[in-house]
Design a protein around this nucleic acid. Structure first.
Length: 560
DNA sequence: TTCTTTAGCGCC
DNA sequence: AAAGGGCGCTAAAGAA
């Protein structure tokens, strides 16, 4: 049975069981302690899903008390998905806002999801308050019942139900991972910094960076002083040597033949390490042997997660040396094989591509054997070009080959692109909906104002419309992949329940489980099973396989 | 001085 | 080989 739980302003709990339509099916209980109230009902096994305002509001205090739940319905996460599905993307998602809409009352704004957009403050924003005197459980029930009705009104109610369940499960995983943290050896990290950057003193430049800056300067002639970390400085220096640069991006520098290039590129890499993952990062984000980022499920519009602080989803390869399992424990690092091409096969139902994705083999190799004369790189380029909206180069030619052999697959993403260019909405397989163009106008150039971009204009219209098309083309694949991966997480989390293994890291198509060494093989099997189960759950009976590459390691850096 | 934007690069 | 989809973060540059 489903139960609803609301936390009052005083921090106490109001709970009641629910019927199938989300109405109270029993008396309301008022209890002083949320964690205890939930724990007691969870232990009895009578609760299959907890309905609450948001996981972020309720679950951390449960975890603090050692209480885990199996399933939940996060009304705020679900509200965002439902609003999108209804073409009302961007309306506030808070419970208070949803309740106000039902009552036709003034709708309060949401606080920004991203910490970077929030006012600097010591405290994360609390929940958007309900009007004074409102019973939080009644508001929760009203909103929840309304959401159940809206699910039924959606195009594919069964898919929408699955999507809401998956997103909610994701919020549970995120809260648990926030709490667990990534095992992190600060001593290994510091040693690595010393090796690569040399000695560094507080406030000073690491010795290796200073040396490289010297080398760069020398390469521009005696007496020259060029600071590699100042792009304008670098552009000027090259100009003096007769080389014109439009930027100092690494790929542009690599095209140039000049003695300054090599030390400059090296400096870029190390400077980046120093500023983004150096000692100050270590001090800020690593405590008690754990790196604790804050995950934001659904933080990006495609359904991918983002993170606040610490750059959790951009940990450079070299730094992964510092991610080390506890004594006697292992890291199971699992990477979904060619997630996006497999998802494209599943959603487009292209017979040929489904067959390619139907073996456990590397998809690009199979594809290259069949259509690209054994050239795996070309096959990969063609497929990624189709998904990303390649506009020029060899990839475009390869795309034509792909279109001939796998017409339904290419037509699927082409149609998504056309929809975007024409200002229509697109959705993932489960119904996650892309934001309308207007909501993202600032991301797509001038939005129609100003002079036309002559060189960027093609047969399909202006640069903004085509950028929109690339976005929607990518959205249907990247987003459906994100939906599938959420189901993987949910399934994996269920099978790890009751063991000592814990999810500690998740990055788009990759997940890390930290577990006792003797549990590692069981975790590997659990990942494999979760991938297949998620595939069937999301896409129904499909020949497409969803394999993972897994590695059981003590150190993250050894996984690939 | 303080705030916002830009350049650049890390990850998928 | 070219520079396309999604993000976050830092320091410098520019604006106020």
């Amino acid at each position: 049975m489903r139960w609803a739980v609301a936390v009052t302003a005083e921090g106490t709990a109001l709970l009641c069981p629910l019927d199938g339509r989300g109405r109270a099916a029993g008396p309301v209980a008022a209890e002083p302690d949320v964690a205890r109230a939930v724990a007691e009902r969870t232990a009895s096994g009578s609760v299959t899903r907890w309905v609450w305002r948001s996981t972020a509001q309720v679950y951390p205090r449960l975890l603090e008390a050692g209480v885990r739940v199996e399933r939940c319905h996060d009304t705020e996460a679900c509200e965002a998905l439902l609003l999108g599905r209804e073409g009302r993307w961007g309306e506030p998602r808070s419970l208070s806002a949803a309740w106000a809409r039902l009552r036709r009352a003034p709708v309060p704004e949401d606080p920004p999801l991203r910490a970077a957009d929030r006012q600097p403050s010591l405290f994360a924003p609390g929940p958007v308050p309900l009007p004074p005197g409102t019973d939080p459980l009644e508001a929760l029930l009203e909103v929840y019942a309304g959401q159940l009705r809206r699910v039924e009104a959606a195009g594919h109610p069964e898919r929408m139900r699955l999507l809401l369940a998956a997103e909610s499960a994701g919020t549970l995983v995120a809260a648990e991972m926030n709490r667990a943290g990534v095992p992190w050896r600060a001593d290994v990290h510091r040693e690595l910094l010393r090796e690569l950057l040399g000695e560094s003193y507080p406030g000073g430049e690491p010795t290796r960076l200073a040396q490289l800056a010297e080398e760069v300067s020398r390469a521009f002639g005696p007496g020259a002083r060029v600071r590699p970390d100042l792009p304008a400085d670098v552009v000027r220096a090259f100009a003096r040597d007769g080389i014109r640069l439009s930027s100092t991006r690494a790929w542009e520098l690599r095209k140039i033949d000049h003695p300054a290039v090599a030390p400059l590129l090296r400096h870029k890499t190390l400077y980046r390490l120093h500023t983004a993952h150096g000692r100050s990062w270590l001090r800020t984000w690593v405590r008690d042997g754990r790196f604790r980022p804050e995950y934001v499920p659904g933080g990006s519009v495609t359904g991918r997660w983002t993170s606040n602080g610490g750059g959790a989803l951009q940990i450079p390869k070299v730094v992964r040396r510092a991610v080390v399992a506890d004594e006697g424990w292992r890291l199971v690092v699992a990477d979904a094989d060619q997630m996006e091409p497999r998802v494209l096969a599943a959603v487009s139902r292209d017979r040929g591509l489904m067959e390619v994705a139907g073996s456990g083999r590397d998809m690009y190799s199979v594809l290259s054997d069949r259509a690209f004369g054994g050239d795996r790189d070309r096959a990969k380029l063609a497929l990624l070009g189709a998904v990303y909206g390649q506009t020029s180069g060899d990839g475009l030619r390869h795309l034509a080959d792909l279109r001939r052999r796998y017409p339904a697959a290419v037509a699927y993403v082409d149609e998504a692109a056309r929809a975007g260019e024409e200002g229509r909405l697109v959705r993932t397989w489960l119904g996650r909906t892309c934001p309308p163009a207007a909501a993202r106008e600032e991301d797509f150039g001038d939005g129609g104002a100003g002079p036309p971009e002559t060189d960027a204009q093609g047969p399909s219209g202006g640069g903004a419309a085509r950028a929109r098309g690339r976005f929607t083309r990518n959205f249907v694949v990247q987003g459906s992949g994100a939906d599938w991966m959420l189901l993987v997480l949910a399934s994996l989390r269920q099978s790890l329940a009751g063991t000592r293994a814990e999810l500690v890291f998740f990055q788009h198509d990759e997940v890390i489980v930290h577990c006792p060494a003797q549990e590692a093989e069981a975790v590997v099997e659990a990942v494999r099973a979760a991938g297949e189960r998620a595939g069937r759950a999301a896409f129904g009976e499909t020949p497409v396989r969803f394999p993972f590459t897994t590695a059981v390691v003590e150190c993250y850096a050894d996984a690939k």
